[in-house]
Simulated scan of single mutants.
Amino acid sequence: MANDSKNTRKIPIVCPGHTRPLAELQFCYIAPEQRTFLVSACHDRLPMLRDGTSGDWIGTFVGHKGAVWSCRMDPSGSLAATASGDFSVHVWDAITGKDLFQLPHKHIVKTCDFSPNSKYLATGGHEGILRIYDLTQPEQAPITIPQDPSKKITITKCNWLSEDLLIVGCGDGKIRFWQPLAQGGPATVPVHTMSTEGTSEIRDMEVSRTTAGQDVLTVAAGERVYFFDLQTRTCLKSYKMPIHFREEGGASLHPSGNKFVAGGSDLWVRVFDYQTGEELELNKGHHGPIRCIRYSPTGESYATGSEDGTIRLWKTD
């Protein structure tokens, strides 16, 4: 039962447009323009681009034939990539919406991410194979790296940490660090592996740098949210949530590093104290379970995407 003393009764900005459950949200801050964008992946096959502050619709990327599971903009804001259940990844001109090229796969693709220099795109999914595409030569075959040569392990999330280091979240509850561009050919073993409790699938994974300069990996899996120090590669905090992330949901750390937001198996959006795990806020607005959640780069707001097909922008205090 909801605790009314923590229910702040905030009224979010509602962003309609999607017609099916949301799958992923990503903010992208473009420094030269001093503007924040928000891109969304959805099961309706139509990823969208919005103004990250107002939530106003900017454009829709049309071309997929299956549910879109992942959407990312490159650091320059000129490219977008989307991974889909139609066994493909599309790379788009983020300014015009033009479909630049398609990267075929052999199974559902669950995740994609641009390298910091925008030269490479990493993808992964139900094949259990990490693919690295050189976007300056998209016609060339990608670098392929199985997560485990002996068995298929689904890749659920991938995030570049640097130009030569990639973090991969998997269906076996493990987080693998790869150097896919190392000299001497494709990597065959990860340079490091971190584990969550049990074998619950990594549902969400976010790389962020706090205002104190600490690089943190936020992970949602099973019934817990984890925070890993990316320099020491150790677990800083782990909290059991009043929700689970077995089918949907995620978590995001505020840029200050003082609090985090999480949503999953119920309709509530919860804000927690990072140091203690205490629940600070309990906000309701969605009419379906929370599927994805992210703080804006400034921390002034956060976005939630739900099974109800809407995105909501919530102001922080």
Rank of each mutant, 00 (worst) to 15 (best):
R9A: 12
P12D: 11
C15F: 01
G17D: 00
A31P: 05
E33Y: 13
Q34P: 03
T36R: 06
C42R: 05
C42Q: 04
H43F: 14
P47D: 00
P47M: 05
D51Y: 02
G52R: 00
T53Q: 14
S54W: 05
F61L: 10
H64A: 13
G66C: 01
D74W: 07
S76R: 13
G77D: 09
L79W: 07
A81T: 14
T82Q: 02
A83L: 05
G85M: 13
V89M: 08
H90V: 11
W92P: 00
W92K: 06
A94L: 07
I95R: 14
G97S: 10
K98R: 14
L100R: 07
S118K: 02
K119M: 14
Y120D: 13
A122I: 09
T123N: 14
H126L: 14
G128Q: 00
D134K: 10
Q140E: 15
Q140V: 07
I155E: 05
K157S: 03
K157C: 06
W160Q: 06
L166W: 04
I167Y: 13
V168R: 03
V168L: 02
G171H: 04
D172C: 04
G173Q: 07
K174Q: 15
F177K: 00
W178R: 00
Q179M: 09
P180R: 03
Q183E: 15
P186D: 12
T188A: 09
V189M: 11
V189K: 09
H192S: 08
T193R: 00
T193G: 01
T199D: 15
D204F: 11
V207Q: 02
V207T: 10
V207A: 01
T210G: 01
T210S: 11
T211Q: 09
A212W: 05
Q214T: 06
L217C: 14
L217T: 12
T218S: 15
V219I: 15
A220R: 07
E223M: 00
F227Y: 02
F227V: 07
F228W: 14
Q231A: 07
Q231H: 12
T232G: 01
R233I: 01
T234Q: 15
L236H: 12
K237P: 07
M241P: 11
P242Y: 02
P242T: 04
I243R: 12
H244A: 01
E248N: 15
G250R: 06
G257R: 05
N258Q: 14
N258H: 08
G263L: 01
W268C: 09
V271H: 10
V271Y: 11
F272T: 09
D273V: 13
Y274E: 12
G277H: 05
L280Q: 08
E281F: 00
K284M: 03
G285P: 02
H287V: 12
C292Y: 08
Y295D: 05
Y295H: 10
T298Q: 08
T298A: 15
T304V: 06
G305F: 01
G309D: 04
L313V: 03
